[in-house]
């Protein structure tokens, strides 16, 4: 039992009752927020996991192609083929509000859209290189989506952790503390009331006794 350090007065009692009501309401709201965040987070994680699997697979295949190319070509040829890219991207970041968490939304603009983005002629390179680059450019949207989803998952996880802490603090510390304090003040006030009553009764008894004494003395005379 943890009683807050307050003086047991009627005013404190009303104040505590108000705070308890606010805490209970806040607890319910935060709990709802946590549950909804959690639901979205778990959906998102499942999606992201699948997406990551696909992207990793594609990158691995592309890397395989690059390795083959590197084996076939002289290194200088490979480096010079990829040295001056024709393509360039710029990334636009908007933000979206998910349950009070600002999460990014990525979109990109390519300088030369479409498939024809190879920065070299076909004469001195192998087909593996072309295939690998095609494969990579095909997963570009997914690569972007992966970044967006992982960031969102990251931010949601942080927010859930924070909300969970708040819910627990309210549920296990604040609310019981307020309840205990209210109980303590109520008991203290009741006790005061009772002691007052007994005092009055005692005083009354004393006065009555005095009166009886006086009457008895008068009757004796």
């Amino acid at each position: 039992m943890a009683v807050l350090n307050v003086s047991p007065t009627r005013m404190e009692l009303t104040r505590m009752k108000k705070r308890l009501a606010v805490a209970v309401k806040g607890h319910k709201l935060l709990k709802d927020k946590r549950d909804e965040l959690m639901r979205r987070f778990l959906d998102m994680i499942r999606e992201t996991k699948e997406l990551r699997g696909r992207v990793e697979e594609a990158i691995r295949e592309a890397n395989h192609g690059f390795a083959l190319t590197a084996a076939l070509l002289r290194r200088e040829a490979l480096v010079s083929a990829l040295m001056l890219p024709k393509q360039s991207v710029s990334l636009d970041i908007a933000s979206k509000n998910v349950m009070g968490v600002e999460v990014p939304v990525f979109s990109i603009q390519q300088k030369t859209p479409g498939e024809d983005a190879l920065s070299y002629g076909y004469a001195f390179t192998s087909g593996d290189l072309d295939n690998s680059i095609m494969r990579l450019s095909k997963i570009l949207p997914e690569l972007l989506l992966l970044a967006q989803q992982e960031k969102t998952a990251q931010l949601l996880a942080a927010e859930i952790e924070k909300t969970r802490r708040r819910v627990n603090a309210l549920e296990y510390i604040m609310i019981p503390d307020y309840r205990d304090t209210i109980r303590y003040i109520t008991m203290k006030l009741d006790e005061n009331e009772r002691s007052n009553l007994t005092r009055l009764m005692k005083v009354k008894d004393m006065m009555v006794e005095k009166q009886i004494e006086i009457r008895r003395r008068q009757a004796g005379h």
Partner: peptide, 20 residues
């Protein structure tokens, strides 16, 4: 406007330059 960067050993990341 932001850019996109890739860090790693050359063999693993060279292809990304073709994407811009």
């Amino acid at each position: 406007m932001y850019s996109i960067g890739v860090i790693g050993d050359y063999d693993s990341i060279c292809g990304f330059s073709a994407l811009g």
